[in-house]
Design a protein around this nucleic acid. Structure first.
Lengths: 239, 239
DNA sequence: CGAAACCTTGATGTAAATCAAGCTGAGTGG
DNA sequence: CCACTCAGCTTGATTTACATCAAGGTTTCG
């Protein structure tokens, strides 16, 4: 269960055995969610933070008009609400996009961690910073890229993030999002989302069948997306 | 100079005199930038982090097509590149939108701070989390709001953020952005940006003359923006 | 078999980009 | 003082991108 977190952190810095033990102890409570369940509701004041160990989840916000914007996608190894440890109140909801298994950390234990393990604290902080960088890459894609480029960027990003925890098979990976959910990621109507996907298929860039995405031409996909993985901080360095 | 930071932090939690002293010591080096100067360049590996004390700055990314997307606006009291302390490499640039005065913190000193002052560490972490929350509010605005609503949301946000450090005068505040720069914030063409602004003027929601914005009807502006300040975490609470 | 979820397609209207031109005020040099 | 430039703002015309409306298709599943 917790190995996905270790893989995530160990792509950025070295973890000692003692640190791994602390994380294991902090994240000992287990839970499961079904597809469509709210893992955390908007407005909640959670007393635990949630590590996603298996499955896909999304942060989202519903506007008064009833439309939904997904602001982040989460994969195994991600904390979905670590920010709530310090922000206290959820300004958005988090939904399971597939069956999810999670581990929970009491905020009290996280506070102790910040008192006793500065290095782990920095790595947890880094985790939230990387998600901030992902937010920025989404803003650039939404504001200044074509919709095809935006979709290509999302696919490149997900591929690389899933690769960290070994959840890709060659150039294929499982993505349990409907086109309607992807439209909520990109801020598009369902109809237009479908047309963007079909254009990418026509270009022989990817196939997307039965929740399985296969990248047919990684170089052309990256070039369409202007994808540069620097923002994901995938190198080991003392932090 | 550093008072803006204190005001920022003290809107979220209590600071002790000792903590204020540590911050004063950590942030002792001073610098200035002229309008248009890069405060930090994309690709740089800074060894200091920058606290903005006076002026406006923006994070931005240039696409291959040459267009620019601004991913964040910074005001007095904000760290513009605190994330670089742990992310190490800048995946975007930071530009001064007006003359700026800043204070610098060595990353070595920030590391000591994480070793010796867990509470201050949490508050600095919180600062980056709040900017993450702002990123998410921008994503929602870009994806699912009308352009008028998006602009209204930016104005509400800036007003509230500037109010924290006393940089508003009634319902007016100074905003040294050209319409072209605001277009780079919202991901619009200059021509369309201009038309959105004029529509808001026609509705008697705001005036915007000589870099001075005056909100004429706060309630209607908030309602157009669906503005809810929760995400800015403006309440005092032990963190 | 019928229902439900998801995907696809076509037609039409609206939002926004792009192209092109002109305006205004501040600063600059002759 | 006037001619000139330049940055920033404004307006109109045209094209393109996208939303919306409407309908039908496919697959899965009880």
């Amino acid at each position: 269960m917790i190995e996905a977190l270790f893989q995530n952190l160990e792509h950025r810095d070295v973890l000692s055995g003692a640190e791994r033990a602390i994380l294991r102890e902090t994240l000992s409570k287990e839970r499961s969610f079904g597809k469509g369940d709210d893992i955390v509701a908007e407005g909640a004041r959670p007393t635990v933070s949630t590590l996603l160990c298996e499955g896909f989840a999304a942060r989202y916000k519903i506007t008064e008009g009833g439309s939904r914007q997904i602001t982040a996608l989460h994969v195994a190894g991600d904390f979905v609400d670590l920010h709530a440890f310090l922000m206290k109140t959820m300004d958005h909801g988090i939904v399971a996009l597939s069956p999810c298994r999670v581990l929970l950390a009491e905020h009290g234990d996280l506070k102790s961690l910040t008192e006793n393990s500065p290095h782990l604290t920095r790595l947890m902080w880094l985790d939230t910073l990387i998600h901030g960088a992902i937010h920025r890459s989404w803003i650039v894609a939404m504001g200044r890229r074509s919709k095809a480029s935006h979709l290509a960027h999302i696919m490149c990003e997900l591929y690389v993030r899933l690769q960290i925890t070994g959840r890709v098979d060659g150039l294929s990976f499982h993505l349990p999002l409907s086109q309607a959910e992807m439209a909520d990621v990109m801020g598009l109507s369902l109809v237009h989302m479908n047309r963007v996907i079909q254009a990418m298929r026509r270009e022989n860039l990817v196939t997307w069948i039965n929740q399985m995405i296969t990248i047919l031409d990684w170089d052309r996909l990256c070039s369409l997306a202007e994808f540069d993985r620097t923002y994901l901080n995938l190198w080991i360095e003392p932090r």
